[in-house]
Design a protein around this nucleic acid. Sequence first.
DNA 1: ATTTTCATGTAATCTGTTACATGATTAC
DNA 2: GTAATCATGTAACAGATTACATGAAAAT
Lengths: 190, 190
Amino acid sequence: MRAVSTLGFALMALLTRGPATGYQLAQRMRAPIGHFWTANHSQIYPELARLTEAGHVRVREAAGRGPRTNKTYTLSAAGRRALADWLISPPTPQPRSEVVLKAYAVSGAEPDRMAELFHAVAEQAAATRADWLRELVDMERAGADDIDHQQFGNYAALRMGTESQRVLQEWAAWLAAALHAKAGRGEAAP
Amino acid sequence: MRAVSTLGFALMALLTRGPATGYQLAQRMRAPIGHFWTANHSQIYPELARLTEAGHVRVREAAGRGPRTNKTYTLSAAGRRALADWLISPPTPQPRSEVVLKAYAVSGAEPDRMAELFHAVAEQAAATRADWLRELVDMERAGADDIDHQQFGNYAALRMGTESQRVLQEWAAWLAAALHAKAGRGEAAP
DNA sequence: ATTTTCATGTAATCTGTTACATGATTAC
DNA sequence: GTAATCATGTAACAGATTACATGAAAAT
């Protein structure tokens, strides 16, 4: 039996929120967990077939509106066990950030252009953080910051999101300021 | 002419630090930029061939010790231009974090086991951060925090690294504490 | 002697994205 | 009427990992 991929566990994690069709899973995989794990339907449908074959999910078919039957997926007991085992295993870090790569090569383009870039990144991060903070406050009002609330997982993910955006914003603003100062000096002293 | 992949730009970014062989690029892609972009040699060698074909790098061959010739790569003027264009283009966010995915599904395993996991994550993040902070201080002593220092790019990347680890540590510790409290309650009230 | 480092490649496999394909229902 | 949403799939391609393959020089 082939090992379940991270995407498979992500889908099982989404199914802990209740049964869903492939289409609904694609939607659930937007906010807030979509900020930390994404997949589109062309990846989801085959993966659900694999999970079904492995016995991790059960499927109930019903006549659909389109040319095919609608399939609703539910976590099986075996799937729940497999998910729990995966959850308590040490996570592997995901080392890929385009924006830091660009910072590493910061001397490869003109300072004022790079300053613009990181300024824009900082602005975007601030806007995103403001969005997410609003969501976070809504969730707190709904009591999702209580660990027993069924939305606590969403809350925890979103909280990491806001903190990450704050760090990104501060870092990008620091870089932009340094680059701006350099650009000013470069233009002042010909 | 096929578009250059992000890996291609990453290799060109590494080549701004001076000419190197594929083997040396694989080594440079460890610290500190390796915390934010990785690739192993089996990906690097074919990509260097593509960059050569596209005219972004030039190659100088010399008799090697092993069965093949050693190839030293240098950024070409065209490569430098292509890199500069890419650098000032808006970076795309990389939304994949296994540890946040696990937090999202936190109710899928026993609280005390999840508490252990996030405690370990926090400890690891603290250790990593301490390591990187030491490096950061060394770089500051060498003057790399000056934007004109040739190591400033490394410094900027590492600075993002330490801040990211701090956030990860605080967040994981918060989660671990919440889970620990819940586990305590669960055992106390049968 | 054996392991590590230097050094370069290919093949097989897995993961992820974009494009192609179909068709009913609902909202404007 | 047309656009958006619901709903499910396949194919082609691109990106990344693991395994296979070779061999000299230096360190232990």
